[in-house]
């Protein structure tokens, strides 16, 4: 692999926005394809962060600064990717369920999914079943990802699953959040429960392949 991309990945893991942007420009000047820069410079760096996060080797602040660097990089690279006709690996509609305003867990899952090359549409917090389904239809989403932190709003997940089935859309429903368990996932017939953000991103990617 190009040393520029290796350096880019390392700076991304440290959350160094300025260095990442400089190295993207350097890589473009060296004639490296935008898709290669994305995958081997940016996404590979975020993937390392995801694995370390899963193993408790890095924590929430480190994930956030790495994701900020990745976002700065992908924003800079976007026009070149569009020009090259690079497509995302899949589409996810994500949100925190109706009645719940917590978003940090959802945001970390979103960042991890983007780090896998997925296109993630963030509906924010307090999202109703109808909003999830409408967005999934409009974007032909592969996945609907529901987050909740509150025991009081867990029931909303069942409303989302039921509406997805009733509307007959193809999106898989993934769920997560502090009070959610595999037993709960089974009881509401969701497609997947994952205990952490990095695993959620891995499973989401597997659903899209």
């Amino acid at each position: 692999m190009s040393t520029t991309l290796v350096e880019m990945s390392e700076f991304l893991q440290k959350g160094r926005v300025k260095n990442v942007k400089e190295l993207i420009q350097k890589a473009l000047d060296e004639g490296i394809a935008p898709k290669t820069i994305l995958e081997e410079g940016l996404l590979s760096g975020m993937s390392v962060v995801g694995e370390k996060f899963k193993k408790n080797e890095v924590f929430v602040p480190e994930v956030l600064i790495a994701a900020r660097a990745m976002n700065a990089g992908t924003t800079m690279l976007k026009p070149y990717l569009v020009q090259e006709g690079v497509e995302s690996k899949g589409t996810v509609v994500i949100g925190t369920v109706k009645g719940d305003l917590h978003d940090i867990g959802k945001n970390i899952v979103k960042m991890m999914m983007e780090g896998k090359g997925l296109n993630v549409i963030d509906l924010g917090v307090d999202v109703s079943a109808e909003q999830y389904v409408t967005a999934a239809k409009e974007n032909d989403a592969d996945i609907i990802a529901c987050s909740t932190l509150l025991t009081t709003t867990m029931g909303e997940i069942k409303n989302v699953v039921d509406l997805v089935k009733a509307e007959g859309i193809r999106a898989k429903v993934m769920i997560g959040g502090a009070p959610v368990t595999q037993d709960f996932c089974d009881s509401v017939n969701a497609d997947s429960y994952t205990p952490d953000a990095a695993t959620a991103a891995d499973v989401a990617l597997s659903f899209c392949l």
Partner: peptide, 10 residues
């Protein structure tokens, strides 16, 4: 502790 509060609901 350490009984998980979500069990109250689930």
């Amino acid at each position: 502790g350490c009984v998980p509060p979500p069990m109250v609901v689930t």
